[in-house]
């Protein structure tokens, strides 16, 4: 099997870009790209990925020059389904089931594909998760309904504001503020008893679960740069949520 180096470079970087953008760990991106390039029988393969960019270099033939490219990743989203699909494509490519053209087609499809779950289902799930956790943190059965509504409001606000606000943490701040306000309002008009638990439930959909887990994983596999930057992202998100809810409480309670 011999492929043109340029094709392999494009396919590898496309795969890496999708994975990193939609919330894969750094070590997984590096390992996948190195495996794919090696499977295409290139030597001297090196990949370096951080949270915001990927470098990939390899050698085509001994007397030829080495190839080296980078991509910059600006957006970071959470869509673990796309990570899984890219993982599957790379696995098939490495074991020789599909050719490089098939791999590129599949990756482009994945990149273009819409979200796996529709937006209304995500908001509904946010409500269910919020009300469930408000019960687990000590709320009563009667608190399920206001927690559901408040969590749904915060999920709605974070998704809608991220379309307009470029600053990442502003949307989370606003969402925490709106969710907390809804919770306080609902308790004020007599729906729900334990205010604290309802507010906690309304914040649960905003928890930065993906960066938090990836930060631990990256730090432990030796990607210190990526791990620290992901940890900083998770910390900033949590601080934005905390200050949003602090503002609500100082104003309304």
């Amino acid at each position: 099997m011999s492929y043109k180096a340029d094709d392999i470079m494009d396919v590898c970087l496309l795969a890496g870009e999708i994975m990193l953008k939609y919330g894969a760990e750094t070590y997984r991106v590096e390992e996948t790209l190195e495996r794919m390039a090696r499977a295409a029988s290139f030597s001297n393969v090196h990949c370096f990925a951080t949270t915001t960019g990927i470098f990939l270099s390899f050698e085509e033939k001994k007397e030829k020059e080495d190839l080296m490219q980078m991509v910059r990743i600006d957006d970071r989203m959470q869509d673990l389904n796309k990570v899984t699909e890219v993982n599957q494509v790379s696995r098939e490519f490495v074991s020789g089931i599909i050719s490089v053209n098939d791999a590129r087609e599949k990756l482009e499809q994945i990149a273009k594909a819409p979200m796996q779950y529709p937006l209304w289902l995500i908001h509904l799930a946010a409500g269910v998760a919020g009300s469930g956790f408000s019960y687990l943190f000590g709320g009563g059965w009667f608190d399920l309904i206001p927690a559901f509504l408040a969590a749904m409001v915060s999920s709605l606000v974070v998704v809608e504001f991220e379309r307009y606000l470029k600053v990442r943490f502003a949307a989370e701040f606003t969402a925490a503020f709106c969710g907390g306000t809804t919770a306080i309002l609902l308790v004020f008009i007599g729906l729900g008893n334990s205010l604290d638990q309802i507010i906690i439930g309304s914040l649960m959909p905003l928890v930065p679960g993906v960066p938090l887990t990836n930060a631990v994983r990256d730090l432990m596999s030796g990607d210190l740069l990526a791990g620290v930057s992901r940890g900083a992202e998770a910390l900033l998100t949590s601080l934005a949520i905390a200050s949003g809810i602090a503002l609500t409480i100082s104003i309304f309670v």
């Binding site: 919330g23 959470q78 869509d79 796996q116 946010a126 269910v128 469930g132 687990l136």
Partner: peptide
């Protein structure tokens, strides 16, 4: 039971494969 439902809901939020 509630943990199960809430965790599945969180899976939908993070778009975990079906």
């Amino acid at each position: 039971l509630i943990t199960f439902i809430a965790t599945v809901a969180f899976g939908i939020i993070f778009s975990v494969p079906k």
